[in-house]
Write a protein that binds this DNA or RNA. Structure first.
Lengths: 248, 248
DNA sequence: ATAAACTATGACGTTGCGTTAAGGTCAAGA
DNA sequence: TCTTGACCTTAACGCAACGTCATAGTTTAT
């Protein structure tokens, strides 16, 4: 049996935290008959460590509470949702970094380009790593199928499909001021998803992977940049939100 | 002159938000003599848009308040600090994503290995591309200098230096449970930085770039993974924190 | 016995608003 | 003119996850 102080030093959290976890019913110790002091046993210690693990992963305490009282397969589902959410946050922060860089550049009036070029390289290196992760989600079989499907179309049909796609992108640009989570942008994502069916039928994870690839692979990105320099990043964010909301 | 409602729809924020900004002195409108209603002019609209821009970048409102009342060069400095902070957050989220992935795999009982092995080919194919990008990050002059410096050492000296480096990494692993911002980890970063002087003398940004490269380039990362599978990511996070604290 | 160290509960502060609530003001229609 | 409804005001609680006193009882060491 540990007292609050003992457990707190053991686990590296504050006494107040333990009080709070008791208060919200996340970690409820037994009480001493005699003086009402909290008493934690080894099971409590174990539970606390699980709590701290999920807390480190930025789970909300209320979610942790549910999690720990549910079977293992639900924990997996929760983790997968969390994975989506983290990617959404990642996409957002990436975009912020770029915007900050652009703004600094703007304020500095294009000075010190050499130094800038160096930073550019950093972020590109960064990007390729993400692209790799995105690609990991693809089954090579699907990719091959994608090509087959595409090549079965006639030249005119191909052109028509591409035009349709471009229309989606143009509308997406129009939706940019409204934000990636706006109904307009989300509707564009919906249309984009339908459009993708000409090539193959991606599931939600693959959809996110695709948007990621578009925004990261220099090959793809070139085309997007021609339409609008921030379209690719915006699309990825919008798709991330789309996927996250659809998944739950 | 706009009323609260008008400005709120114009800028796409809630009335409550405008009330709040008035309350904390971030955006103070004039008041009607007659009935005390808030009246915003065009200057207020402009200021609001600047506020929203920085808010989008996750600046705290108190910081925005200072920012908007300070000269342009201070805004640049603030943006640069924010840039560092965003990278820190990015590194953290990346690590979380990895941990979540590992945990899912663990819970699933390691079933995914075949798929993973499948993609091994992909990453090896891309290795050369990474290597190229990694080189591009550095000023060729620095790289050459680095080589000159390194090759001027004797064989024993080289070995001693490498051993010293490994010792830093081992200590870094020991510091991992304490967190990337712990004094232990930060001390390791300090030692690592000193160690790097055997090769070249990176400035703070280059230091961060180096850690990033170590964690992303498969070439480098292989070596780190051999010591500990999360060392590279941990190091990058620790270095990001190190750089951020030193810079301000 | 007394001080130091520990325990308890309660309550306010933090950030950026959302959300009622209770009540004034103003223009328009019956 | 009276009423309705849309707008305006301030005040105050709620949210997440605790940190930080404040006040008071308990245990332990000397």
């Amino acid at each position: 049996m540990y007292s609050v102080k003992e457990l707190s030093t053991l686990a590296g959290v504050s006494v107040r935290t333990l009080h709070y976890y008791d208060q919200i019913g996340l970690l409820s110790p037994t009480r001493s008959e005699h003086n009402g002091y909290r008493q934690y046993d080894d099971a409590a210690l174990l539970r606390l460590q699980q709590i701290l693990f999920y807390r480190e992963l930025d789970f909300k305490l209320s979610d942790i509470k549910e999690l720990l009282d549910s079977p293992a397969f639900e924990q997996i589902t929760a983790l997968e949702h969390h994975w989506d959410a983290l990617w959404t946050r990642l996409a957002r922060i990436e975009r912020l970094i770029k915007t900050v860089e652009d703004t600094i550049q703007h304020l500095k009036g294009e000075k010190e380009m050499s130094k800038r070029a160096l930073f550019q390289a950093f972020s590109e290196e960064q990007q390729s790593a993400y692209a790799k992760q995105a690609e990991q989600q693809y089954d090579p079989a699907t990719v091959r199928e994608s090509n087959r499907k595409w090549q079965s179309y006639s030249a005119e049909k191909k052109q028509a499909i591409l035009d349709e796609g471009n229309q989606v992108y143009v509308d997406m640009i129009a939706a940019m001021p409204k934000g990636a989570d706006s109904p307009e942008a989300q509707a564009c994502v919906e249309r984009w998803r339908a459009h993708m069916n000409y090539f193959w039928t991606p599931n939600l994870d693959q959809l996110l992977g695709l948007a990621t690839m578009y925004s990261q692979s220099t090959d793809f990105k070139k085309n997007f940049d021609a339409l609008h320099p921030e379209l690719a990043g915006f699309m990825r964010e919008a798709v991330a939100i789309y996927v996250e909301t659809l998944k739950r």
